[in-house]
């Protein structure tokens, strides 16, 4: 899981080797000077009406969307407006926590761009079209409990939720989706 800071993706040695005659030692010894700094930037994004409800329902173990009566889609995550019809959306609607894999990857690299080590499971993020939500679109989540290369587009999946007391109102209240058929 993602809980560590993301280490530097490319080593300074590798960069120096390809781009310049300056040696790493030139920088480390202070012969070539450089300045290091990192920003102290923090944000607290307001979820607003639609996403606020979405997260609250995830905490309840439910997935909610909002229907657009014009294009008939149920938007998940919900929105107050339909971006295609450009009108306010209509009723709130719960959708199923089951769905179909629209697309996925078998990722051989970790979040920090290091390679997945031998014996570790490859990452398998997917787009999942939820039952009851708009067709040919879906939410982004992870697939687990299956060998990565056995996953196929079109497979049926179901959410595996965290225990109710562990849920905080976040997309990670769903641990992952597992293949059910």
């Amino acid at each position: 899981m993602i809980d560590e800071g993301r280490p530097m993706m490319i080593s300074p040695e590798a960069v120096l080797k390809t781009t310049t005659k300056i040696k790493l030692n030139d920088i480390q010894s202070g012969k070539v000077l450089s300045v290091h700094d990192k920003p102290n930037l923090k944000y607290a994004w307001d979820n607003g009406v639609a996403i606020g409800r979405y997260l609250a329902e995830l905490k309840n173990g439910k997935i909610i969307g909002k229907r657009c009566n014009s294009c008939k889609r149920v938007l998940v995550p919900p929105r107050l407006f339909c971006e295609l019809c450009w009108r306010p959306t209509d009723d709130w609607e719960y959708v199923q926590d089951t769905g179909t894999i629209l697309t996925f990857v078998v990722s051989h690299v970790n979040w920090d761009a290091s390679r997945v080590k031998k014996g570790q499971r490859y990452h398998t993020p997917a787009v999942i079209e939820l039952d009851g939500a708009g067709k040919d679109q879906g939410i982004l989540h992870l697939i687990d409990e299956i060998e990565p290369y056995d996953i196929k587009i079109g497979m049926r999946v179901k959410a595996v939720w965290k225990e109710p007391e562990e849920r905080i109102g976040a997309i990670t209240d769903i641990k992952y989706f597992k293949v059910i058929e």
Binding site: D46, N47, G48, V49, A50, I51, R79, F81
Partner: peptide, 12 residues
């Protein structure tokens, strides 16, 4: 402050 609305909802 506008804790009630997201940036998308404000612009909409």
């Amino acid at each position: 402050t506008t804790p009630d609305l997201s940036y998308r909802e404000l612009t909409y």
